[in-house]
Simulated scan of single mutants.
Amino acid sequence: MTTLKEKNKQHIFTLTTELDPPKSASPKVTEEQVVKVAPYVDAVNIADCPMAKMRMSPIALSSIIQSRYQVESIFHLTCRDRNIIGLQAELLGAYALGVHNILTLTGDPPSIGDHPHAKGVFEVDSTGLIEIARTLNSGEDMMGHKLGEPTDFYIGTTANPGADDLDKEIRRLEGKKKAGAQFIQTQPIYDIKQAEDFLAAAKDLTLPILFGIVPLKSFKMATYLNNNVPGIFIPDKVMKAMEKGGRETGIAISRELVKALKEIHAAGAHLMPVNDVDAVGEIAGEEI
């Protein structure tokens, strides 16, 4: 099986999608979602207690998905819950389980989640976590001690094409690449020109960029994202289309964005269906 890393290296357009782990000791719910999306994607992202809400371990779930369904996984890892000893231990365990793609995140503060009195760690941020993964790849721990066997993680990071200060965002990514980042998955876009501008600004990074897409379900959802989520810009033509249409219109818009990303030679698209996993097949079906 050609890995996500190899596909990115070969400039093969890739599709990924994001699923939340269950608040359960059973992976059944997520497994059912994986069965639905597997025919259409190159890899599945598994979130790490998103919005600081306690969920199943993304490493354990990623291992289950890969072994049972032969679908490559990208596990999220945050700096919220672990110090540098714990982060290294998690990474070594993940690699031993065959889970080799990581998306590095600082993480949401516990105060916004379902255990608001829990203590956040944040000994390092996402750039520090990238450096930890790169160091393990080199065969050493963070104290310079040799590992019995090195890891070989494909290290991902995030970016925001809609950042108010794009130059600052690119400088931040330059620091992340220096720390060891190897690919990028972005926040949602709804304007292909925004993606083109970001690709132009980031061209010297020479990192594969998978642009995020959140399928719109309604005009209400579009209005909320446009007005309340920093970095998200929804063009007037999209807003007008969503005002007249609904979920089907949102699916069509997402499908056109995926096609346009292919045409501008982006590395891929990252579909974030917000629990509407059927949308993945509806968007990507024509792309396979």
Rank of each mutant, 00 (worst) to 15 (best):
V35H: 03
I12H: 09
G98Y: 02
H117V: 02
L87F: 02
V280D: 07
E90K: 07
G281R: 10
I234M: 09
S67M: 12
L271E: 00
A133M: 11
E123F: 00
G148E: 15
P110R: 04
L271S: 02
C49H: 02
I74M: 00
L216F: 08
K220W: 01
D42T: 01
L129D: 06
F219Q: 12
P208A: 11
V274F: 13
E287T: 12
H115I: 12
K23C: 01
A200K: 15
A269F: 08
H115W: 09
D164R: 14
L173E: 03
F122W: 13
A195R: 05
P116L: 04
G250H: 00
S138V: 00
T223L: 13
D164K: 15
R68N: 13
N227S: 15
L77P: 02
V280S: 02
A60F: 09
I264Y: 07
D20F: 14
Q187N: 13
E6C: 01
I184C: 03
V34M: 11
V229W: 05
F211A: 09
E131Y: 02
A47V: 12
M272R: 08
E243V: 05
I192T: 09
A202C: 11
R255M: 10
N275T: 13
V214N: 10
L205I: 11
K178H: 08
P150V: 00
R82Q: 12
I192C: 05
L271A: 02
I283K: 11
